[in-house]
Write a protein that binds this DNA or RNA. Structure first.
Lengths: 210, 210
DNA sequence: ATAATTCCGTAACAAATGTTACTGTATCCT
DNA sequence: AGGATACAGTAACATTTGTTACGGAATTAT
């Protein structure tokens, strides 16, 4: 594990901290489409992402969903972090978008490391900063863009994080992420196909190079 | 100034830190409707709010606006904080909703205090936490609520922060905050009046107790 | 007092998004 | 193979939101 830690977090953390993470961290491998966290669940450890992509969703009382952003390797979930600090329940849902590897850190260590390691403090601050910026970006999209633009952005982002211009998803799944209906997505996808931006197949969308 | 600092931040900061804030902080009083920060401006100091209400807005390239949230006394702007840390430009616009008093902290002190004072670290972490939660709340509203519900929520929040059930604003101003058009707001306000939730006057809306 | 300006109400219409319903086809299951 | 299920396309319609236009009332300026 220590090698993978060094590869992904070596530039951030000093050796002593990497060593500690290696000792107390729980290494986990999870399959695609695995629910890492539900809204309302208590948070007892914090994940450091080593490999793969995690999508972070918001849910309202009716169970309607909305994609907030994707986490990639080197990222941590500032939302979880935030909940750890405040000893509160999770406000978000986390699902693996691909197979993923991560290290779980018990929350007791966090407070300790915050005093002990400057690099950890900076990491935490940076994570908060990055997540705030992602949230701003999410707000921009839902507030200022129309659904067709949001859809295209969504497809582009998805190909970016998976590094694959083929998107394996049904229209219904996309509709859930963007908080709209399947019919609307089908309609807009069809329009994007006419504009030669994408190619449609069953369970599969190919993003064409522009 | 030290009394006002103690009154608002005494429960958060130890005396030594309060003393330092008192020494290096710049006390400022600003009138209503004063622009504290523009999108793209460089951030060289961090505000601690002592009195009054500040509204934080997001702007897109076309100059369209959207209200993110209100800051009240005891709050700081985590977005500014975030920008200070990253030495980057402001992503938001800040305008005083009422007369306000605040203390400006030079950003050099922040890094110093983060190592030196545990209470300062916690304050910074808490601010990030609170702002993330506010952002989630903002996302909930724009993603899950229709315009009439957003409008009512907006009016309720506005009366809460100003502690006055009379809202002094034109329909156009409200439309800017919610990123819609004046006509839409007039229409929905009229509907709220019919439901006996509000009373409409020129430049003034009275929120009726339910 | 008169004119100009700002604010609000409303109608009529346009565009975007949401809903329901039905079809055909691909895929899966046994 | 045959049936069940999941997925996508499409039409028709409803609702929400946005736009343009205009008139009247309140406020401000001259």
């Amino acid at each position: 594990m220590i090698q993978e830690l060094k590869a992904n977090y070596g530039h951030l953390f000093e050796d002593a901290l990497l060593q500690e993470i290696n000792e107390v961290g729980l290494f986990k491998e999870i399959p695609e489409d695995f629910t890492l966290m539900e809204v309302g669940s208590y948070v007892k450890s914090m994940p450091l992402l080593i490999h793969g992509v995690i999508k972070i969703l918001r849910e309202d009382k009716e169970g309607d969903e909305l994609l907030l952003y994707f986490l990639e390797k080197g990222d941590t979930c500032a939302m979880t972090l935030s909940c750890c600090m405040g000893q509160s329940k999770s406000e978000i849902k986390a699902i693996s978008e691909t197979d993923a590897k991560l290290v779980m850190i018990p929350i007791q260590k966090m407070e300790e490391w915050t005093s002990k390691y400057k690099s950890w403090r900076n990491f935490v601050f940076d994570s908060y900063h990055n997540r705030l910026m992602e949230m701003l970006d999410t707000i921009d999209k839902i507030a200022f863009l129309k659904m067709d633009e949001r859809l295209l952005t969504y497809l582009v982002e998805k190909t970016k994080v998976t590094k694959d211009n083929i998107i394996s998803a049904t229209h219904q799944e996309i509709a859930y992420d963007l908080h709209t209906s399947r019919v609307v997505i089908s309609r807009l996808l069809k329009a994007l196909e006419k504009e030669r931006k994408i190619e449609l197949h069953r369970n599969r969308i190919v993003l064409l190079p522009q």
